[in-house]
Write a protein that binds this DNA or RNA. Structure first.
Lengths: 200, 200
DNA sequence: ATCTTAGTGATACAAACGTACCATAAACAT
DNA sequence: ATGTTTATGGTACGTTTGTATCACTAAGAT
């Protein structure tokens, strides 16, 4: 047989091609042939590594979630060593905003998948769509740390704040994505709200 | 010729069929034939009243925006006669949450259109996607009224609050839509945040 | 009464889709 | 050395898509 090839690696390459093509044309408009062309392989190969389109889409979503997770942790790490809770929270919330091409892509495709999951049960069953968000838990804990350190205003419900902030970040992201708002203004709004949560 | 028919009315009926079909199968999966079947007319008629699919989609979005606007004003009106600013604001923000079938449909299709608008410039040019939101202006004014009446905490930036609340409402709506959160919890989070803005 | 024209039906068409099938080259097992 | 298996290419098939064409009905205009 021709040189043995790393399946996992190949699948990742193809999934990245899917992501690029979807970012250009929209996820709904991407076909197997587009993915093949973008990856520089034959249609048959896409079929070979992913038996069906649905499998490819599912893997694409997982791949995207993985890459997004990496980006978030990188962003948090970039907040410096031993940063205050406020800095970490800011990094966490800002990571979801579409400020550059990569994050625009993330937001675009995540939203695409979310919309698809409303009518596609296979997608709806995927953890990052359905499960109580890991980000929610993390953010709640961070806020709780800040509260314990006396950094927050009195009477703050850390869980309600976490949920609200994440929803706000996602909502702001969408409005940036569709061109309703520019990234700077979205970031400013987020900062304003953090200022209102943290003690002056 | 056969009985003269009200074009505008017919187009509305067909647009409603589009909306229903899209709610069931997802906007990406609905074709002209589906719309025709749902409206109980022939494919040719859909072609006749809308020359192309793109025209149909555009009209469908406008129709949806219209119906949504009506729902919001109805919700605000239902807040009672001469309600306080807080009640109006609550009505405004709650109207966007997918709490029943109709509002689920709204949220689902609006998000679908928003996603499509990222890669479709004809959709992106539509006002309710692109323009500085009317809701944002209205909400800012309402908050300003409340501030002038001394109802808000000191140092509140009404515009930043308006933008943040709308984004939060949209974000919460999406998480309800995809089943990450139930409507009651989303409403509770919204109420909590209003409680933090208004003076105790 | 005749002619025009708005409304409607049936159907045809080319393109694109996901998938299936067949063939072949070459690395591995024996 | 030979047979088996893995990786790949090419291509054909059956659907479905949006759109276009042709025909016909009946209401309004003259």
């Amino acid at each position: 047989m021709p040189k043995r090839v790393d399946h996992a690696e190949r699948r990742t390459e193809i999934a990245q091609a899917l992501v690029r093509a979807a970012g250009r044309q929209g996820l709904h408009a991407v076909g197997m042939r587009d993915v093949a062309a973008e990856a520089g392989v034959s249609l048959r190969l896409v079929q070979y590594y992913f038996e069906s389109k649905e499998k490819l889409l599912l893997f694409g979503l997982r791949h995207l979630a993985h890459r997004f997770g990496e980006r978030v942790t990188a962003q948090v790490r970039a907040a410096g060593d031993d940063p205050g809770p406020r800095a970490v929270i800011e990094a966490l919330l800002t990571a979801a905003l579409p400020v550059d091409e990569e994050s625009r892509l993330f937001h675009h495709l995540y939203t695409s998948y979310a919309v698809l999951s409303v009518t596609d049960e296979a997608l709806a069953a995927q953890p990052f769509i359905k499960d109580p968000d890991a980000a929610e838990i993390t953010l709640t804990e961070l806020l709780q740390q800040a509260a314990d350190a006396g950094l927050l205003r009195a009477g703050t419900d850390t869980h309600a704040e976490a949920v609200g902030l994440l929803a706000m970040s996602a909502g702001l992201g969408t409005s940036v994505l569709v061109g309703q708002r520019d990234p700077e203004s979205a970031t400013a709004v987020l900062h304003y709200h953090l200022d209102r949560i943290f003690r002056p």
